[in-house]
Design a protein around this nucleic acid. Structure first.
Lengths: 166, 166
DNA sequence: AGCCATAGGTTGACGCATCAACCCGAGCCC
DNA sequence: GGGCTCGGGTTGATGCGTCAACCTATGGCT
């Protein structure tokens, strides 16, 4: 399987990534594409939920009252406000969440409906099982720790540059 | 930063993922989200190319004649045919690629235009540099190898299940 | 010949992501 | 008061991803 973003030499002259780097980069790209495809497809086909739906549902289900201000939900998911707003509108249309005005407060709260709660309770165990089967169990505890360290290191590096002008 | 898909316990009763698994899964999710955001934003802002544009351009630029049947391009990218067709239509509109009929053949070829070629030559070095800076150099050669092995193992596991009914 | 399956390709509809623009009220400074 | 910025939130446009439906040569089978 060819992984195009991995080949950094459209003119085949300078080796912008060496052998080791190429291999790792291509392996990572292939793996992450497959993993998200697999998990997303499973959620969609078995539970009629997109990964985005799932993420919102999980966050709401964890909090007491199953309700939250949109801004807090945005912080929890690290989503931009407009993305969140669009997503909530779609989910509201489908009856998974509701937006309810709060008497004294300026902004309404997003609430998990019964239907939304039922959906997450149905889907979560299978999803977790897949994460174990396709990810955690493949590496095992020790490797998993090293893998986590690697991810954290890259994350930190990226975080440093988050405010760069690019 | 909370990573909602990482918390597999909406009801907080059974620990579907243990501590180690949680940590690795969350670290992976955070890292991959940041990495793709960073690389994608850079391509978009500096070169007016989406990651998808870039992938197509790289593949076409590598092949002699800078032209290819759509089906082969599909195999190279592992994209579904309809996705590819839509993408090519958009890129054709922007003058990055063209679809040219081949005299004796049934199907036309997708060709990289001069403009498309110029775009990839402009963008590729910066992109490769970012992959090194944000990914390869962070881990270093030895860790990079282990990381690649982990990714390959997960990929293989997923490949086995690609034909599953889900 | 006639029939059928298959591969290559396009289209339309809908959900999702991002950007820019906008609205509104709270707090602040003058 | 008057004007400021700022945070919270919505909207619309456009690009992207997926699914289902469809078209049409080719190649195989009878």
């Amino acid at each position: 399987m060819r992984q195009p973003m991995a080949r950094m030499r459209p003119m085949a002259e300078e080796p912008w990534l060496d052998e080791t780097q190429q291999r790792a980069w291509r392996a990572y790209l292939a793996m992450s594409k497959r993993l998200s495809t697999h998990l997303g497809r499973q959620l969609q086909r078995k539970f009629d939920l997109s990964p985005q739906d799932f993420e919102i549902l999980v966050n709401l289900s964890e909090v007491p009252g199953r309700r939250m201000r949109a801004a807090d939900l945005g912080r929890a998911t690290q989503w931009e406000k407009s993305r969140l707003s669009h997503q909530l509108s779609r989910m509201e249309r489908r009856g998974l969440v509701g937006r309810e005005a709060v008497p004294g407060a300026r902004y309404p709260e997003v609430v998990l409906t019964e239907q939304g709660y039922a959906a997450i309770v149905r889907a979560a165990p299978t999803h977790a099982a897949s994460v174990r089967a396709m990810f955690a169990d493949v590496l095992g505890p020790e490797l998993l720790d090293r893998f986590a360290e690697a991810c954290e290191a890259i994350s930190e590096r990226l975080e440093e540059h988050e405010s760069d002008p690019c």
